[in-house]
Amino acid sequence: MTDKFKILGKYIKDMSSETRDAETYIYVRDNILKYQLNIDIKSKPLKNKMVEVNTILKFEDKNETKHKSHFEMNYATILKIDDTVSEKKELEKIILCDAQIKIYPELEKSFLSMLHNSGYPDIKFEKKIDFENLYMQRFN
C-alpha cells in the first residue's frame, strides 16, 4: 500500500518545560515515574489539499500536589493529501494514525531530549503508542 499523503515539513511549534524551584525539582525527580504521557492530535485544513497536524504531548502528574513540573510539546506536521482521498474517514485515518506512525519516532526523540535537558536524564517511554489501536478504539 502506498501512502496517500506526503509530509512537506515538520517542526516543533511550541515546547515547554516548567519546574518552579529546586524543591519542586527534587520532588519531581523522585516521583517522575508517576507522571503520565498524554497525546492530543488537532488538525486544520490549509489550501491545496494540505493539512497542518498538531501533535501535542504532555507529560504530567495527575495527582494533586503542589510540587509539579509541566512538560509539553506541540509538534506540527504539514501534510499534502493525495487527490484520490475524498472520504472524511480516510482523511481522519491519515491524520490520526498513518502520519502519526511516521512522525512519532522523531517526536518522541525530541520530547525525551527536552526532558533529559530539563534535568531528568533517566526518563524513557517503555510503552510505545499504538496509533492503529487508538484509532480503532474511537469507533468502539
Results as ranks from 00 to 15, higher is better:
M1N: 10
M1G: 11
T2E: 06
D3T: 06
K4N: 03
K6L: 07
K6W: 04
I7T: 03
I7W: 00
G9C: 09
G9F: 12
G9S: 10
G9Y: 03
I12S: 02
K13Q: 02
K13N: 02
D14R: 03
E18F: 06
E18W: 14
T19K: 09
T19W: 04
R20W: 15
R20M: 15
D21P: 10
Y25R: 10
Y25K: 09
I26R: 08
I26P: 13
Y27H: 04
V28A: 11
V28I: 04
V28W: 08
V28F: 12
V28R: 03
R29L: 08
I32Y: 05
L33I: 15
L33K: 09
K34G: 14
L37E: 15
D40F: 10
I41W: 11
K42M: 12
P45Y: 07
L46P: 07
K47F: 04
K47H: 07
K49I: 01
M50W: 01
V51P: 07
E52N: 06
E52P: 03
N54D: 13
T55H: 04
L57C: 02
L57T: 00
K58A: 10
K58G: 09
F59S: 00
F59D: 00
E60P: 01
E60T: 05
E60S: 07
N63V: 11
E64V: 15
E64N: 04
T65P: 06
K66E: 12
K68C: 06
S69K: 01
E72L: 07
M73G: 05
M73K: 05
M73T: 06
Y75V: 15
A76V: 03
A76H: 05
I78R: 01
I78T: 02
I78V: 03
I81M: 00
D83Y: 00
V85Y: 01
S86M: 15
S86Q: 11
K88E: 04
K88Q: 12
K89Q: 09
K89S: 10
E92S: 07
E92F: 15
I95P: 01
D98M: 08
A99Y: 00
A99M: 07
I101N: 09
P105L: 04
E106A: 14
L107V: 09
S110E: 07
S110N: 09
F111N: 03
F111H: 04
S113K: 03
L115G: 00
G119L: 01
G119C: 07
G119F: 11
Y120C: 02
P121L: 03
D122G: 05
I123Y: 11
I123F: 12
K124T: 09
F125D: 12
E126I: 11
E126F: 15
E126M: 13
K128F: 08
F131K: 07
N133H: 14
N133V: 14
M136Q: 12
Q137E: 09
Q137L: 08
